[in-house]
Nucleic acid binder design. Sequence first.
RNA 1: GCCCCUGUGGCGGAAUUGGUAGACGCGCUCGACUCAAAAUCGAGUUUCUUCUGAAGUGCCGGUUCGAGUCCGGCCAGGGGUACCA
Length: 840
Amino acid sequence: MSDTRFDPSSADARWQSAWEEAQTFRANSASEKPKSYVLEMFPYPSGRIHIGHVRNYTMGDVLARYKKATGHEVLHPMGWDAFGMPAENAAMEKGVHPGAWTRANIDHMKSQLKQLGFALDWSRELATCEPDYYGHEQALFLDLYEAGLVYRKKSEVNWDPVDMTVLANEQVIDGKGWRSGAEVEKRKLSQWFLKITDFAGELLEGLGGLENWPDKVRLMQENWIGKSKGLEFSFDLSNGERLPVYTTRPDTIFGASFVAVAADHPVAHSAAADSAEAQAFIAACKRGGTTAAEVETAEKLGYDTGISAKHPFTGADLPLYIANFVLMDYGTGAIMAVPGHDQRDFEFATKYGLPIRRVVAPAINDADKPFDGEAEAGEGVIVNSDFLDGMEVEEAKREIIGRIEKQGRGEGRTVWRLRDWGVSRQRYWGTPIPFIHCDACGVVPAPKDSLPITLPDDVDFKTPGNPLVRHPTWKHVDCPSCGGKAERETDTLDTFVDSSWYFLRFASQPADKPFDKDEIAKWLPVEQYIGGIEHAILHLLYARFWTRALERIGLIDVEEPFASLFTQGMVTHETYEQADKTGRVLYFAPDEVERRTDTATLKADGSPLAIGRVIKMSKSKKNVVDPDTIVDTYGADAVRWFMLSDSPPERDLPWSEAGIEGCSRFVHRLWRLFSTYEAEAKGADKTLDRRTHQTIAAVAEDIEALGFNKAVARIYELTGAVEKATPSASRSQAVRTLVQLVAPMMPHLAEEAWATIRGEGMVADAPWPEVDPALLIEDEVTIAVQHKGKLRDTLTAPKGTTKGDLEAMALASDKVQRSIDGAQIRKVIVVPDRLVNIVT
RNA sequence: GCCCCUGUGGCGGAAUUGGUAGACGCGCUCGACUCAAAAUCGAGUUUCUUCUGAAGUGCCGGUUCGAGUCCGGCCAGGGGUACCA
């Protein structure tokens, strides 16, 4: 083997073409091998590959290569989540067509991914913005419509009155449009919805079977779906109407001191009919953003309608308010308010001087205990509540529900927090919704043989609003039902729809239908799905729903799309800041900065910079590191190794120049070690054999658990051991093993070394080294000896030494005796093969 | 606001079901090699200390023979919050 340096700039490209030529990573669905579908969340083609993508795809790549080595037929595809707002923003700002912009980005990013040597099956590449993808999505949408899972209803959007356009939540800043600066209004539009609430129970139950999902994601989804049992009952109003309200705390009914409805509630509208003041209040509620965070943090405001509601048990007249914190979408859009035991009601009652009554207390004789400036939402004993006094919360709930049901005034009801999925977007760059509006026939589904309904190319973004609405011809069609003049739906689908079934299309790509059921059965569910924690709720819940919906209508046999889920952390970087003359903070990019151990200066003029917090890379903070530059400098393997080292994959990874240099040094250190390989060396080295086999087993275990940082640490340890070992057959074997252990992580280096050591075949096709179980067992263990829980000594004993012997050995220790100092021994705790604790 | 997560040396972190806190890497210090430097190799590196030990895993408290790990209460940072993807 030559002793030249490893040169990534030639080796990387050479092996990348070798894999491509041999179609090494092409998935064969006809294979007899067990199937393994490894998938990372596909990227949005924003322009350039981000270092976070590199981390995500490196993790998936290691797993995919490992699965292949362990005898699996692996499907590891890549595609593009290619519809979305940034393409339209680029169109408005730079005058490029969203499609041209997106496709150019895809080309560039694809070449970037190829430079990293990922083991991807590019033959299955797809982009959601192409008609051969979204046409099938339109067909699926029509199938769901036929099954009754799609409907239309009016729903609120953020309306920018100057730009005459609908704004996304992120485009509303402090209640104003991001471009126009105009005060945003809530406006109601007719929109398309998917009946995800039909699946609320299933989606909740299904979480129980997802054992290989992180607990935190299951918990977040559970809370999002938000099943709650409560009571719906009606108040008799002083105007003769009945008002149904919903509460999850019927046990606190005697603490109700007012009743409130949402600003959008019919009762609010009728109250406003003859009151300018009420109309003004409702209008005020409609200003500002639509997000839950804004609604919940806004100051609690109300309008007293003058109507009163009769309490069903006390007969008291409670005032009826219109309140800005009551949500029309949850329950009945009306509540009974119990200030003592709900924080929002407490704040409201404090502001409007309404009574705050205690009806739950720590104990029965705490009935008069005052509140400490906030509501008490917890458990306790019911007090001041007539026939409920002394009951526990749950018991009281049952009692009230029973009495209300007997009165015929309401009933116990399960309510979900989950709302139906609104999929209409008033934008151009998305999947056209396949429906036609006809004055005579109403809303008519587009015939399936008219699919794909493609986007028109000749659009402009110079005027605000949806180009599909303005287009001179696109929307004008004949009604498929009566043949008369009609118009296409101009809304497009939420891009979350695109990402709710792409994993099915990867597995099977017929031209005439979205996928083939039998092919889906071969590959699905995805064995391991990897992506960012930011998708814990929306994307993952929508994909689960879409899969279940397709299963319900018989298109597939899979209920859950992702058997295992892994959520990775972000890649972060420190910021470099300097205040300008006006005190405004300016940020500088890493390549403009001279970074020393504790200080940083600006390359341009040598002025000192403040080193800011380590945060998620973002353009505005200028702390973005470009993967191209570092791949050019250090090679793909060093970058991949850095992505896997040190930080646990679920946590954030701080990027550092020193770190990547260390990784690069290790690549070359390994190369030097590989070049010491002696095929003919003789003799056995038992200790080294043991370490080699222990490392094979441990690295395999770590990769399967996606604990890449631990696998990396073990490879460092074995490397150090092999370097120190004298030549022997064992050492040569250890070197070969090391090549294979690093192959999933540093595939280019490994191929280069494999070619010189083995001479034939590629390491990418080689089976994972076998473990001799006999070599995994240690015969000696170190025992910790503690006195009163503090370490005093350690001793070495044969594995399996009896408790009695260990105790005797511990007591024989000088250090232990000195610590005990003649005191009476009360107890000795012995954990075999681990420790002895002497208690005096 | 609400839901979820995280917090361990100078830094990234390791530590089966509660059982030797700091593996491994980075950085730093010293040494070897060199005319010199880079690269490489070797040794050291939680803090304090009377050199015997003591303290120590964000803070306060609890359970236990024993707590980074379990429980209660805080603090700080992060993710999501239904039209960013």
